[in-house]
């Protein structure tokens, strides 16, 4: 096994993917805890479709996708959260609406211009070949920002996630922190999407939080264990994907699923 790992890391593109993936998995899991608890889990799916739409359109016009996809997704993320707070429109239907439209626009524009080539397929299902040196630098910068902000705002994120009305009443600017979560999630999705794929990126946000909540019961332990679970699942996933030549994104999600089942059983045993 050690030999296989050494062989794997010998490929520059794989070692880049391992670095980017570890950081993205960690950050996605931390943000995921708040999103899952606030019942915003669907936002991950919605945002990944929006990011797909923007990325494919940008590529079709021969533009660099990242500088457009990041601000674009951030704007949509903030709008989605605003809708979530407005009781007139149900946020889950709004998310379904926006994500289907974004997906359709992306596919339509691409098929009219360059055609549905492997690039589009990679955006959809992910490819570890997609990681360039710029991606590595970007993901390191973004991950450090996410981690630092997470530590600085940890207490407030807890208070706002647990009870928004109380937090607002005692003077916290709650919308600032929900926007912060939305913005960071959007950025992590755009960065991670190209490796994991549009269809699968939202799962690395949701799975670790749900998995650790099967067993752990304090906020702090859920946060810490989600981060660890997420990174471990990613590393096992990418290793198995190399070993058996299976799509990396799909393998990571499957490992997450198995971990979720294991933790569910473990949780049952602990309770009895």
């Amino acid at each position: 096994m050690i030999e296989t790992i050494q062989e794997m890391m010998g490929f520059a593109f794989i070692s880049r993917a391992v670095l980017v993936g570890t950081l993205v998995s960690l950050c996605a899991a931390l943000l995921g805890v708040s999103l899952v608890l606030k019942r915003y889990a669907n936002i991950g799916t919605g945002l990944s479709n929006v990011a797909f739409g923007i990325t494919t359109v940008a590529t079709a016009f021969g533009l660099m996708p990242l500088p457009i996809a990041i601000p674009g997704s951030i704007i949509v993320a903030v709008i989605l959260l605003k809708i979530g707070n407005n009781h007139k429109i149900k946020s889950d239907s709004a998310i379904a609406l926006i994500s289907a439209s974004a997906l359709a626009i992306g596919v339509a524009v691409t098929s009219a211009t360059t055609g549905l080539n492997t690039d589009v397929c990679n955006f959809m299902f992910g490819s570890i070949l997609a990681m360039s040196m710029e991606d590595v630098i970007l993901s390191i910068v973004v991950s450090i920002i996410v981690l630092v902000l997470f530590v600085i705002y940890y207490r407030k994120l807890f208070a706002v996630t647990f009870d928004e009305d109380f937090s607002k009443a005692v003077g916290l600017k709650t919308s600032r922190y929900t926007n912060l979560i939305a913005v960071l999630t959007a950025v992590i999705i755009v960065v991670g999407m190209r490796m994991m794929g549009t269809m699968l990126i939202s799962s690395i946000i949701i799975f670790p939080a749900l998995t650790s909540m099967r067993v752990f019961k304090s906020f702090k332990s859920v946060i810490i264990s989600s981060g660890i679970i997420s990174v471990v699942c990613f590393l096992i996933g990418i290793f198995l994907s190399y070993l058996y030549n299976i799509s990396t994104g799909a393998m990571i999600v499957l490992v997450n699923l198995i971990m979720f089942i294991l933790f569910t059983i473990l949780g049952k045993i602990v309770r009895e």
């Binding site: 608890l37 606030k38 019942r39 207490r155 407030k156 807890f158 208070a159 996630t161 647990f162 009870d163 009305d165 109380f166 937090s167 009443a169 005692v170 003077g171 916290l172 909540m213 752990f216 019961k217 304090s218 906020f219 702090k220 332990s221 859920v222």
Partner: peptide, 29 residues
Amino acid sequence: RIGYLPQMTEVQNNFPATIEEIVLSGTLP
């Protein structure tokens, strides 16, 4: 400052948090 005790929400029904974490969050302001 007013200490507020809102009605419980659905979010709190399966929120992983200890008593200590919740009480301590009251000192935040």
